[in-house]
Design a protein around this nucleic acid. Structure first.
Lengths: 114, 114
DNA sequence: CAGACATATACCCGTCAAGGAATACGAGTC
DNA sequence: GACTCGTATTCCTTGACGGGTATATGTCTG
């Protein structure tokens, strides 16, 4: 059920941008507004969607509300595509080019997979 | 083409169901229609969306069109959440570093994991 | 070639989500 | 308490999306 909320929350590019922003560090709303170039109300509404999907949590700091990423739903996504992982672990060679073309930003050194 | 198409394609639960069906084995349209209980045209439209997102490919077999899963876009999804994986794989460590990065502001909150 | 079958497309409609403007709410400050 | 700042919520409009019915396209069979 909340699975649907997770997917529809991440379906929006602005919200994925927000999630990416919060991956770097928690941020107050104003900072997010500036970063994604939307109006403040729109940003707040996106944050509400992310909040209700469980993707972010809020910490109140005076008048500011600092949003931070909650890893659990993204871990659920990882669990979702678990059954599909075998599809490309078997045909890894034919896939390397596609992966290279689509991955935008890999700031991580060789990851401890599995 | 873009990963926007991929996300919006997978945002729909019916399409995720179709993808799950095709994970088991390739299927002709009629079988998919029956399985997800939609009308044939609706199913065809969903299949078109999945096709344009690169998630499925078609093989023509007489009058039938057999749809099969293409693993590449799902692998791209896997690549997308690669930067997030550290959030739960080494949960405490990563969280600690993120909270530490917060104190670049003038204040520094206690690391209240709640 | 006609007719049956499998799938795709066109068209219409209801619903819903996203965006902006205005406004309300809450927390600090004096 | 009044004022200000930061954020959330409401109202409204618009455009995209999903579903269904009807129809077109293409393929096989006789």
């Amino acid at each position: 059920m909340s699975d649907a909320a997770l997917w529809s929350a991440l379906a929006d590019p602005h919200r994925r941008a927000i999630v990416a922003l919060l991956l770097e560090r928690p941020r107050p709303v104003g900072e997010i507004v500036e970063a994604c170039g939307l109006s403040q109300p729109s940003t707040s509404k996106h944050l509400k969607v992310l909040r209700e999907a469980g993707l972010v949590r809020v910490r109140q700091d005076a008048q500011r509300r600092v949003y931070a990423l909650d890893p659990a739903p993204i871990a659920a996504l990882d669990a979702w595509l678990e059954p599909y992982r075998s599809l490309w672990s078997s045909s890894l060679d034919a896939l390397g080019r596609r992966l290279d073309a689509t991955s935008d930003d890999t700031r991580h050194p060789p990851p401890a997979k599995d």
